[in-house]
Design a protein around this nucleic acid. Structure first.
Lengths: 361, 361
DNA sequence: AATCGCTACTAAATCGTTTTAGTAGGGATA
DNA sequence: TATCCCTACTAAAACGATTTAGTAGCGATT
C-alpha cells in the first residue's frame, strides 16, 4: 500500500477557519451569554435546564434567555457540566476486536439503546492481549465512564462500577452476564444432526480465549449423551490463532481430515469457522452436505448467502447488545437499590438451510 | 427472542460495592493526597506531570509524592484536567453502521493509531438517517472531541474542527479525504475481465448514499471505453436498500437476469453484493465462473473462503483507517500551521481467485 | 409598625485539576 | 548591610458549568 497525491492546499488553513468561527459563532460560554443578557449565570442555568428553581422566573425573561441561547448557538460545555454534576452520560465498551462480525452486531444493539438515552460510548479492543485487558478498563474508568459493557471479554478487575458482560460466564460481584442459553443451543444443533441420522459428529471448539468455548462443548456433549451418542475426543478440534478469518476453521478441519477419522457431520463454533470448514472439506473432494453436513453458529449476514447456505444456530446478537445496554442503564438509574442481576439469558433458534442433510452412507 | 432466568441476586447490592470501594480505595483527589502529604496540590501536580517547574523540587519530595500516589491509587480526573487544559484526547468517529464489515475494518486501523497516541474515540452510527447525520456531529462536538473521522459519510456541516473523511469525495474546507485510487481500481478490475475475454460486463452500482458509488462507476466506464467496450446501461443495476446483507446484491442480479440481457461478467460494488450475485446466478442454473465471472470489491475476510473463492479488488481498509487517524492527529498537532491536506489516496490491488475465469462461449 | 411571604433574581462555593504569580528563607555577592 | 538569586514551595485564579444560600423590593397580614 502506498500513499500518493498528498496534496496540501495552500492558503486554506487560516481564513476558512476564522470565517467559520466568525460565522458559526465561537463556542460561547454561559458567563458570556449572561453578561450579554445582563443576568447572572445562575438564572440562565436554571432556565436553560428547566430547573425547579426556574419557576419563579417570569416567562418573558425565559424567552429572552432562550432566544439569546439560540442566537449565539450556546452549547453547554460537557466537561464542565459533567465535572460539576458527577455524571458523564458515557459508558465504556470493551470488545475483542471489531471486525469479527460478532462484536459489531452486539455493538449495534448497544448503540440502539444508548442513543435514545443520550449516552455515548468509548470503545476499546483488547485483541486478546493481556496488557490491554488490564489497561483498557483503567483507561475507561479514568475517563469517568459510568459503566462498562464487555463483549466476550474476561473480567480481570474488581469492578468499582457497573459492568455487563455479554457472553461472560464468570460469576463476579457487580458483573451481570448476558448469555445465550447454551443448553438449548446444543439441543437444537445436536438434535438437528441426530435427526438427520448423524452419529459421528465432529465438533470445532472455540479458541481458549473465547468465553463460550467451554460451556458450548459441555452442552454439546450433554446433548449428544442424551441421545446415546458420544462426542469422540478424536473428532474434537480446536480453533487456533486469533484471526477473525475463516482460515482458522479451515486449518482445524484440515488437521481433522489428516487424522483420517471418519465423521458425517461438523458442528462448528461459529459461521466463520464453518465457512473455513466447508472449504477444507471441498478441497478433499467431499461434498457439503451430501457427504458431510456442516452446522454453523451465530447466523451472521453471510451465512444465508454462502454456498451452500449455512444451516446455523442463530444467536440474537443485536438483542444481546441491547439487553446489555438496557441492563446497564437500569443499574445506573437504580444506584445500588435494585440489586444486581447476575445473569440474563436469551434463546437461540436454529435456521435450517443447505449445509446440512440426511446422512446418505 | 425471549428473556428467561432474569435472576436478581439478593443482598449482593450493598456490601460488595462498599467493600470494593474500601478495598480498592475510593478515587482520591489531588487535594486529598496533598493534605495527606502536607504539601500543596500545585507541588503534586508539578511532580506527577513532570512539569518543568518540578525541577526545583528535591528528589526525596518527588519520591514521597510518587509513592503516595501509587499507594492511594491516585488517578487524575480526566474531566477536570480536560476542562482546565482544554484538551480531551478524544476524537469522534461517525460510521454508517458497524456491522457492514467495511466500517469495522477501517475502525481497526483508526484504533491502532489512536491507542499509541493515548487517544480514545466516541462512535456514532448514522444508519443513513438524515436526522442522525445532522445530530451526531453536534453531539460529538458538544462532548469536546478534538476532531472527527467520518467513514463513508456525507459531511453536511461546516467543520469547526479537523475532519477526516474516509471515502469522502466532496471538497470541503477543513475536511481531508482519504480515498482509494478508483481509477486504478477500475483499471485492475476491467483489465482483468477484459483480458479473460469478457466484453459484455454487468456492473452492480453501489447505493446512492455510498460516497464511492458515483466515481466508481465513472472510472469503470472510462476503463472500459479505453479498451473499446462500453458498459451497457442495461447491464448496470443498482443496489437498493441499506441492509449490510448479500440480499441486496442478490436482488439486483435477480432483476438483471429477469431482464434477459446477456452478459458474461459481473463487476460488483463490494464482496457482500458479489456473494449475493453468485447466489442469484446459481439459482438460475448458471455456473460461476464457468458461465459467468464475478468480480468483487474490498476483499473482506470471507472473500477468500467463499465458494467459489472471490476474485476481488482489495481496498486496504485497515490502512485507510490508520492513515485517517494519523492525518487527523497530525492536523491536531500542527494547529493550523501545516495547511490542510485535501486528499490522501491509497492504492488497490487485485486478488485473483476462483470466481473469474476465461470466457468460454 | 413589624413580620411574613413572595418574586426575581445574584454571589459565592463547588467539581478536580493546571497554571500564574508569589513568597519565605537562606546563602552568595557587591 | 543591602541586594540578588536560588530553592522549595504555596495561594489563588482559572476552566465552565451547577447549586446552595442569600437578598432586595414589595405587597399583604397581624
Amino acid at each position: 500500500m502506498q500513499l500518493s497525491h498528498a496534496v496540501p492546499r495552500k492558503n486554506v488553513n487560516q481564513i476558512p477557519t476564522l470565517r467559520a468561527k466568525a460565522r458559526k459563532g465561537d463556542p460561547i460560554s454561559l458567563k458570556e451569554l449572561a453578561i450579554h443578557l445582563e443576568l447572572s449565570p445562575t438564572t440562565l442555568s436554571w432556565v436553560l435546564n428547566d430547573a425547579p428553581a426556574a419557576s419563579s422566573i417570569p416567562q418573558d425573561t425565559k424567552d429572552r434567555i432562550h432566544t439569546a441561547a439560540r442566537k449565539f448557538n450556546y452549547r453547554p460545555n460537557y466537561l464542565a457540566r459533567s465535572l460539576r454534576v458527577q455524571k458523564t452520560n458515557t459508558i465504556g465498551v470493551i470488545v475483542p476486536e471489531l471486525s469479527d462480525g460478532y462484536s459489531a452486531m452486539v455493538l449495534n444493539g448497544v448503540e440502539s439503546v444508548l442513543a435514545s438515552a443520550e449516552y455515548l460510548y468509548l470503545t476499546g479492543s483488547h485483541l486478546h492481549r493481556a496488557d490491554l485487558l488490564e489497561k483498557l478498563p483503567q483507561l475507561l474508568i479514568e475517563r469517568q465512564v459510568e459503566g462498562i459493557i464487555a463483549v466476550d471479554t474476561p473480567i480481570h478487575f474488581e469492578p468499582m462500577l457497573p459492568v455487563v458482560n455479554v457472553s461472560g460466564h464468570d460469576e463476579i460481584d457487580g458483573v451481570t452476564n448476558v448469555i445465550l442459553n447454551h443448553q438449548h443451543a446444543a439441543e437444537l444443533g445436536i438434535g438437528h444432526l441426530f435427526n438427520l441420522g448423524h452419529r459421528r459428529i465432529a465438533v470445532i471448539k472455540g479458541q481458549e480465549f473465547s468465553s463460550d468455548t467451554k460451556i458450548r462443548l459441555e452442552m454439546i456433549q450433554t446433548a449428544a449423551a442424551k441421545r446415546g451418542i458420544a462426542i469422540d475426543p478424536k473428532l474434537t478440534v480446536q480453533l487456533a490463532g486469533d484471526s477473525p478469518s475463516p482460515e482458522v476453521g479451515y486449518s482445524a478441519v484440515k488437521s481433522l481430515l489428516a487424522s483420517g477419522e471418519d465423521f458425517t457431520g461438523v458442528f462448528a463454533f461459529n459461521d466463520i469457522s464453518a465457512i473455513g470448514a466447508i472449504r477444507a472439506l471441498i478441497e478433499m473432494g467431499l461434498r457439503v452436505p451430501e457427504d458431510v453436513s456442516v452446522l454453523g453458529f451465530d447466523d451472521i449476514y453471510a451465512a444465508a448467502f454462502h454456498n451452500p447456505a449455512l444451516t446455523t444456530i442463530r444467536q440474537p446478537l443485536f438483542e444481546m447488545g441491547s439487553i446489555a445496554a438496557k441492563t446497564l442503564l437500569e443499574r445506573l438509574a437504580n444506584g445500588f437499590e435494585g440489586g444486581v442481576p447476575q445473569e440474563v439469558s436469551v434463546e437461540p433458534t436454529i435456521v435450517v438451510r443447505q449445509s446440512t442433510a440426511r446422512i446418505s452412507r
